[in-house]
Amino acid sequence: MSLWAKCSKRKTSWTDLNPGQRYSAFENFREVGGRCYFVWIDPPMCTRARQIIPGLLKKVYKLENNLKQVNKLENDMKQLEDDLERKRSREK
Protein backbone atom coordinates (compact mmCIF):
# COMPACT_ATOMS: atom_id res chain seq x y z
CA MET A 1 0.00 0.00 0.00
CA SER A 2 1.39 3.39 -0.95
CA LEU A 3 2.10 6.21 1.49
CA TRP A 4 -0.59 8.21 -0.31
CA ALA A 5 -3.22 5.50 0.33
CA LYS A 6 -2.23 5.22 4.01
CA CYS A 7 -2.32 8.96 4.69
CA SER A 8 -5.34 10.00 2.67
CA LYS A 9 -9.11 9.89 3.00
CA ARG A 10 -11.63 9.54 0.21
CA LYS A 11 -14.09 12.39 0.07
CA THR A 12 -16.75 13.73 -2.26
CA SER A 13 -16.74 17.24 -3.65
CA TRP A 14 -20.04 19.13 -3.56
CA THR A 15 -18.81 22.35 -5.14
CA ASP A 16 -20.63 23.75 -8.15
CA LEU A 17 -17.66 22.92 -10.38
CA ASN A 18 -17.19 19.30 -9.22
CA PRO A 19 -20.49 18.06 -7.74
CA GLY A 20 -20.39 14.45 -6.64
CA GLN A 21 -16.84 13.90 -7.84
CA ARG A 22 -14.76 11.75 -5.50
CA TYR A 23 -11.20 12.61 -4.55
CA SER A 24 -8.51 11.47 -2.16
CA ALA A 25 -6.96 14.07 0.16
CA PHE A 26 -4.37 13.95 2.92
CA GLU A 27 -6.09 13.84 6.32
CA ASN A 28 -3.91 16.66 7.61
CA PHE A 29 -3.56 18.60 4.36
CA ARG A 30 -4.42 21.88 6.09
CA GLU A 31 -1.47 21.42 8.41
CA VAL A 32 0.99 20.93 5.54
CA GLY A 33 1.85 24.53 4.84
CA GLY A 34 -1.80 25.43 4.24
CA ARG A 35 -1.76 23.71 0.87
CA CYS A 36 -4.36 21.23 -0.27
CA TYR A 37 -2.91 17.96 -1.52
CA PHE A 38 -5.50 15.84 -3.31
CA VAL A 39 -6.03 13.58 -6.33
CA TRP A 40 -9.27 13.14 -8.25
CA ILE A 41 -10.54 9.55 -8.21
CA ASP A 42 -13.39 9.98 -10.70
CA PRO A 43 -13.01 11.36 -14.21
CA PRO A 44 -14.36 14.88 -14.77
CA MET A 45 -18.13 15.14 -15.16
CA CYS A 46 -19.70 16.35 -18.34
CA THR A 47 -20.69 20.01 -18.60
CA ARG A 48 -24.41 19.21 -18.45
CA ALA A 49 -24.06 17.29 -15.17
CA ARG A 50 -22.08 20.18 -13.66
CA GLN A 51 -24.94 22.50 -14.66
CA ILE A 52 -27.79 20.33 -13.34
CA ILE A 53 -26.46 18.82 -10.09
CA PRO A 54 -25.97 22.08 -8.10
CA GLY A 55 -29.58 23.11 -8.79
CA LEU A 56 -30.84 19.70 -7.75
CA LEU A 57 -28.77 19.83 -4.56
CA LYS A 58 -30.22 23.24 -3.69
CA LYS A 59 -33.74 21.84 -4.15
CA VAL A 60 -32.92 18.84 -1.94
CA TYR A 61 -31.47 21.08 0.79
CA LYS A 62 -34.56 23.30 0.62
CA LEU A 63 -36.90 20.29 0.89
CA GLU A 64 -34.88 18.88 3.80
CA ASN A 65 -35.10 22.25 5.56
CA ASN A 66 -38.86 22.40 4.93
CA LEU A 67 -39.23 18.88 6.34
CA LYS A 68 -37.33 19.88 9.49
CA GLN A 69 -39.67 22.86 9.90
CA VAL A 70 -42.75 20.64 9.44
CA ASN A 71 -41.42 18.14 11.99
CA LYS A 72 -40.78 20.96 14.47
CA LEU A 73 -44.29 22.32 13.94
CA GLU A 74 -45.76 18.83 14.43
CA ASN A 75 -43.81 18.45 17.67
CA ASP A 76 -44.95 21.89 18.84
CA MET A 77 -48.55 21.03 17.98
CA LYS A 78 -48.31 17.71 19.86
CA GLN A 79 -46.93 19.54 22.90
CA LEU A 80 -49.78 22.08 22.77
CA GLU A 81 -52.36 19.28 22.45
CA ASP A 82 -50.83 17.51 25.47
CA ASP A 83 -50.85 20.77 27.45
CA LEU A 84 -54.49 21.38 26.53
CA GLU A 85 -55.45 17.84 27.53
CA ARG A 86 -53.74 18.26 30.92
CA LYS A 87 -55.48 21.60 31.44
CA ARG A 88 -58.88 20.08 30.59
CA SER A 89 -58.32 17.16 32.95
CA ARG A 90 -57.45 19.56 35.81
CA GLU A 91 -60.64 21.57 35.19
CA LYS A 92 -62.83 18.49 35.55
Rank of each mutant, 00 (worst) to 15 (best):
N75T: 14
D82P: 00
L17E: 13
D42G: 04
L63N: 06
T15V: 01
E64G: 07
L63S: 08
N18S: 02
Q21S: 08
V32Y: 02
S2P: 13
L17F: 04
K68R: 14
I41G: 01
R10W: 09
P19T: 08
N65S: 15
N18D: 05
Q69T: 15
Q51N: 12
E27L: 09
K9V: 14
I52E: 05
S8I: 00
R30C: 05
I41P: 00
L67K: 09
M77W: 13
L17G: 05
N28T: 04
V32L: 01
D76C: 01
R35E: 03
L67S: 10
K87D: 10
D76V: 04
S24L: 06
L17K: 08
N71W: 10
A49R: 07
K62M: 14
Q69C: 11
E31M: 10
D83M: 13
C36S: 08
S89R: 13
K62S: 11
V70T: 12
N66Q: 14
T15A: 07
S2A: 04
E31R: 06
C46T: 13
N18L: 02
Q51H: 09
Q69Y: 10
S89W: 07
K9N: 15
L84V: 05
D83W: 13
D42P: 05
R22T: 09
S13R: 06
N28M: 05
R50N: 08
T47Q: 03
Y37H: 03
K59Y: 07
E74M: 12
P44V: 07
S13P: 00
L57N: 15
E91G: 04
D83Y: 14
K59F: 09
P43Q: 12
P54Q: 10
K6D: 09
W14G: 00
V60L: 12
T12S: 01
D16Y: 10
R50M: 06
E81A: 02
L17S: 12
A25W: 04
D42K: 06
M1D: 12
L63F: 03
E27T: 14
D16A: 09
L3K: 11
P19K: 13
D83E: 15
V70D: 11
P44F: 03
L3Y: 10
K78H: 07
K87N: 03
L17R: 06
S89E: 12
E74Y: 14
P19H: 09
C7K: 10
N75H: 08
G34D: 10
F29Q: 05
N28V: 02
M45I: 12
Q51L: 08
